[in-house]
Each structure stands twice: as structure tokens, then as C-alpha cells.
Amino acid sequence: MCVCVCVYTIDKIVTISRSRLQKMLVMNTIRNSALRSGWLLNSLRKQSPSITTRTFSLGLRLGQQQDTVNVTFVRANGQKIKATGKVGDSLLDVVVNSNVDLDGFGACEGTLTCSTCHLIFKTNDYEKLPDKPGDEELDMLDLAYELTDTSRLGCQITLTKDMDGLEVQVPTTINDARAA
């Protein structure tokens, strides 16, 4: 129990100290991701309250990469940005925690009140996503630029192990014009 709480705190400290280096990091998503990792630990605890599980959760944080998921964000100009998230992270968390350079991404911080974390999936990947978009997500997507049939909001996609290697398209941002 105590170990678990400890890991959570440490993770939070690490995230915050890392953020000082990352100038434009959205402050509140730190809180969100801290809450999320808290939630993750809580749900792990519920599933199996044994010490082993907790040690395991320590293990993945040590970078044994058992539960890391590699994601590639492809900008409209073709530039690929590789990032790594953890199982249970949202794609918005990945963008924020890995400091993926996408201006204005996740303005409402994952509360389903904007469409700035709009991402476009390949049809195969889209169909494999475990959860279908709800009405509220579709409502927000309806306001997004470059809406497609395989569009989702990054904040609503929770990483699972089998998403490793996922490639998602980022709609055109204004920086793409210069680089293209």
C-alpha cells in the first residue's frame, strides 16, 4: 500500500520537475495525468491487491518497457513525430508528456469541450479501437477542421498494449504550411 502511494507521488514529482524544462507544457494536464496515474494504480489495486502487482507497476516505470506503447504522430507535411506512452494513457497524455510539438493541442485538457486534439486514424486502426465514439465526442468532432470518417479525439483514446506502433495523422496545423 505504502509503496503504491509512494510511486504515485514520485511519478508526480518527476512529471512536475520535467515540466520545468518543457516551457510550453500545459500545466493542468500534469494534474490530469497525475490523476490518471493515480486512477491507474487504483484500478490495478482493485484488480489484484497483491504486492506482486505493485512491484510490477514499479517495474514498468523503471523502463522495462513491458507496458510502454509507441505512437507516431504524422503531421500534414509528412513529418513523423515518435512518442512513447504507457498503457492507460490517453493520446492527449502522450502529446503532453512527450512534449510533442503541436500548438494548441488539447485546449480544454481532455474535458470534451473542444476539438483541438482531433486525430485521424487509418481505417484498420480505427475499427480496432476498443471504444466507439460517444455522442459527446462526435458532437465535438463535428466542429473540427478536416473531419473524416476515421476521426477521433485524442483525449478519448486510451492506450492498450496492442496499439504499439500506432500511427495517427494530425490535421493540418498552421506550421505545416511553412515546412511543406
Binding site: M24, L25, V26, A107, C108, T111
Partner: peptide, 18 residues
């Protein structure tokens, strides 16, 4: 009653503290 929309204030505050 749309407090979530106001989350952008966190980003603006970050900018203001530059």
C-alpha cells in the same frame, strides 16, 4: 455552467508567466 471550457486559462497563465 461550462467550467471545462475555461481550462484554456491554464495555458494562458503559462504564457503570461513567460
Amino acid at each position: 455552467d461550462h467550467p471545462e471550457v475555461k481550462n484554456v486559462i491554464n495555458t494562458f497563465t503559462k504564457t503570461a508567466e513567460h
